[in-house]
């Protein structure tokens, strides 16, 4: 047991400030445990989302000492013994209260994306895909929708272009559909014109914060950008597309 100091942002959309709490920390605790202890002992109305407490649901995203992280996966012993822990809500989304932000914009982006479209089932009723092809998509499907990538994306966070770019999370969603071995839908034009693939300038901040270690930029966004280039800027590919209407370039 040791007493530690936390500065937690308290407030709502009208404004707020950091409030200091000193609480006892036990061995093995994570930041989310500390927040729960603050709720139990000092501030029962401190707002914070959480669910699984095991890094699987992506609810407890927050900015801890300036770094976007999951509260449930950030161990207290990752800080220096006398370090003050400063906890803020995600910056990119509007504040609801304390550490809770309004992430509904993300859910709206997902609705804009055309879902998977498979060919009719084979005669025996069983679709076939090979594991090596599934692997590629499964990496993207590990996403737990914590929106840490959205939070650090410069286009969304600093340039406020939520109306132009769907953000890394939904580029990954698009990649999981476009690279699905059996999908027949064509989303390339929309990826360029509506979802804003051109806005990403590959700073890889999203990849750095992904708690699932998805290679968002290298494996997701860059291949999508390449498909856009192939479709719109490669004369031979344009010709082939016109003649055969072939959807997938890889």
């Amino acid at each position: 047991m040791a007493e530690r100091t936390f500065r937690v942002w308290r407030g709502d959309k009208t404004g707020g400030q950091f409030v200091e709490y000193k609480i006892e920390i036990d061995k093995g605790m994570v930041v989310l445990d500390a927040i729960h202890r603050i709720q139990e002992q000092k501030a029962s109305d401190l707002a914070c989302r959480w669910n699984c407490k095991a890094g699987k649901c992506g609810s407890c995203s927050m900015e801890i000492n300036g770094k976007p992280k999951l509260g449930c996966m950030t161990r207290m012993n990752s800080f220096k013994e006398d370090e003050v822990i400063t906890i803020k809500p995600l910056k990119t989304f509007p504040i609801i209260k304390d550490l809770v932000t309004d992430v509904s914009w993300n859910y709206e982006q997902n609705k804009r994306i055309a879902p998977l479209k498979l060919p009719p089932r084979p005669k025996d009723g069983k679709y076939r895909m090979y594991q090596r092809d599934a692997d590629r998509v499964q990496e993207f499907r590990k996403c737990i929708e914590c929106y840490l990538c959205q939070n650090v994306c410069h286009v969304l966070r600093d340039q406020h272009k939520k109306d132009k770019f769907v953000g890394p999370r939904f580029m990954i969603r698009l990649a999981s559909l476009e690279m699905h071995p059996l999908d027949t839908e064509d989303r390339i034009e929309k990826i360029k014109n509506e979802y804003g693939s051109g806005y990403c300038n590959i700073t890889k901040c999203c990849t750095d914060v992904c708690p699932e270690h998805i290679h968002i930029t290298d494996n997701g966004i860059i291949p999508l950008k390449e498909r856009v280039v192939d479709r719109f800027f490669d004369p031979i590919a344009i010709l082939l597309h016109k003649i055969f209407g072939k959807k997938k370039s890889s």
């Binding site: 709720q39 029962s44 109305d45 707002a47 914070c48 609801i96 209260k97 809770v100």
Partner: peptide, 11 residues
């Protein structure tokens, strides 16, 4: 339960 009803985990 303390404070206001807005996003109040205690309540």
């Amino acid at each position: 339960a303390h404070a206001a009803p807005q996003y109040n985990p205690g309540w």
